[in-house]
Design a protein around this nucleic acid. Structure first.
Lengths: 341, 341
DNA sequence: TATCATAGTGTAAACGTTTACATCATTTCC
DNA sequence: GGAAATGATGTAAACGTTTACACTATGATA
């Protein structure tokens, strides 16, 4: 079955290989009669074009790469679902790289693009060192790169992006806690390197400032974007001499860790401690109590980001590079209540 | 920076393109002096080999495809992590296809292999119709396909596989419930098409039979491998005239849905209903109560399956095709207690 | 009828590698 | 010192497509 090339088809159909190629790619340029002859020969031989040769000749892999912090995070898998749906529609396959795994350096990722292994890249995670590598090539041609979810770092600001307004959303979440009467509000952010959670931290700080509420030292802790990291962070928060009555977590994964740790310590959510998450992953509504969180249109972000990448690949400089802001929504469930005191 | 081919390097270094190629791929076949000259030229031109051309020439994409039910399931993302680590070590990239999304038909997946888009396939989900397509080609050459997690369907039995003994593990889980005094035990299985959860169902049925316990009509329900599906299934179970006192769920995702639904209905876990899951995903220890479940070495399965695929790709028929069984473990947490009655 | 479009097909070059083979220079051995 | 072996490099073919260009036959136009 395999190993049959266009030549065999041509021979069997008694035409040239050019005609066979045309039958497949430009059927309108060929007579009805020969088309049928060739289709018949294709069926008989079981021919299917060698994609390697096609890619090589056309200079296109129809492969895009997505760089994200962790595929394990249900939020990103939701984004991926959108990306994949759009990719499928556009005839692309997608390759995934996790930055958390550190399997590839930023330079290697840049090299993949340059060496034609992929037609484009979607960045769902900030890669600061990557910026410099790319930048050097950038002056020469517009690289097909699109940024999703994250607010972009300054060096990458010229690339198209699709995301919610993370600062505003975090502010809104914090304001909700304030509106419920909380004045001592802590926060668990992700990682130092993650611009994404830095933006959310900024939103939180802005809200606190505008409400003239103090943020005490030790109230803002790193949760490493993981359940276990958040549990550790929560322990620190709980042991604080002036313990917060509410915690804003930069994502749901960490909110789940926080929730569990608070409950393990014998305190009750939301009576003793209120918790707000971020992302609205599917587990958020089955926690006990169900989690109040900020919902993002994850799949939509994925789709849009992929479509923009396609435009970039096809149109090059023609495609716009304006950031695209999609709406977020605060989803109120039962993990927040007025403070006890 | 891009668009510089081996020719430019050759010209700059004053050697033939063959020598440049050798410098890169067989440095030992080239003089120290010329090597340095060429390396210098490579740096100066910023050359990086065109992977498309390489793949084409070598007949290798260094790309493998993984077919799985859903990337959203934390168990599979853990397996993927293992696969990706091994792939990285072996110089492969990995492409993912979800069967739940139905983006590709089995025939299309088979075609990808035949048309050289990927060097091999890892099946983490059964694809029955796929079997027939593959089978026709199988007689001609041993296709590089390896099966993971699932017990294989008869048509695919000749391919190498890596998995736990699902039947034995499910039996063990059920026996644990029996040992705690339960006699009315229900089960939520995954999907009709999933051999994986069918095996677990078989284990459950075997355990019940050996303990001479009846399985009443309506005690075994479909949970669709999702939280919402499991909630619906649980509602049916709870409304049963002769309600089970324990439920064995074919995976943790469904166990979480089940747990939440039971609690929503006002019953207490494990006092009123005991629950056992399967997979030991990372959320399993932060549910309330923490979930008793069967743990699989997910990452290890992923690694092994990828290594076997590599051997298959490299050695062809030389590689063994014996199934590889990895150990499982029942992890006892707090979602099981003796029945109230 | 001679000329010119037009449409269908064939010929051959090109894409950037890798690699078998030929060539040439150097060393080794008798 | 000449023959043979060894080692480094160059030459050119090959991989399977796509596509610009050339060619032929057909029908339309003057």
């Amino acid at each position: 079955m395999p190993d049959v090339s266009i030549k065999e088809v041509a021979k069997l159909a008694n035409v040239s290989i050019a005609t066979v190629s045309r039958c497949i790619n430009n059927p309108e340029k060929v007579t009805e009669k020969t088309r049928l002859k060739v289709q018949d020969a294709i069926l008989k031989t079981g021919y299917s074009p060698n994609r390697l040769a096609q890619s090589f000749r056309r200079g296109r892999t129809n492969l895009v790469m997505v760089v994200l912090p962790s595929v394990g995070d249900p939020f990103f898998t939701a984004v991926m679902r959108g990306i994949r749906a759009a990719a499928r529609a556009k005839g692309f396959s997608v390759l995934i790289e996790e930055t958390q795994l550190n399997t590839m350096t930023a330079d290697e990722i840049g090299a993949m693009l340059v060496s034609n292994q992929t037609d484009g890249i979607i960045l769902l995670a900030s890669m600061s060192p990557f910026g410099t590598e790319i930048l050097s090539a950038k002056s020469k041609r517009l690289l097909p790169i699109v940024i999703g979810c994250e607010t972009v770092s300054p060096e990458l600001a010229d690339f198209p992006s699709v995301h919610i307004d993370n600062v505003a959303a975090a502010k809104e979440a914090t304001n909700y806690l304030i509106s419920q009467g909380h004045t001592r509000i802590g926060m668990i952010y992700g990682e130092e390197s993650s611009l994404l959670t830095k933006d959310r931290e900024l939103g939180y700080r802005t809200a606190m400032k505008q409400a003239k509420l103090p943020i005490e030292a030790g109230w803002v802790v790193e949760g490493k974007l993981s359940i276990s990291g958040a549990r550790k962070a929560t322990r620190n928060l709980m042991n604080h001499s002036h313990r917060p009555t509410a915690v804003f977590c930069a994502n749901d994964e960490m909110a789940i860790g926080c929730l569990h740790e608070v409950k393990s310590s014998g305190l009750i959510v939301p009576k003793d401690i209120s918790i707000v998450g971020f992302d609205d992953i599917r587990y958020a509504e089955v926690t006990d109590p169900p989690l109040t969180t900020v919902s993002q249109p994850a799949e939509e972000i994925g789709e849009r980001v992929m479509y923009r990448l396609c435009r970039r690949i096809e149109a090059g400089n023609g495609a716009s590079s304006a950031p695209e802001i999609v709406p977020h929504k605060l989803v109120i469930r039962q993990s927040v209540a007025a403070p006890a005191s």
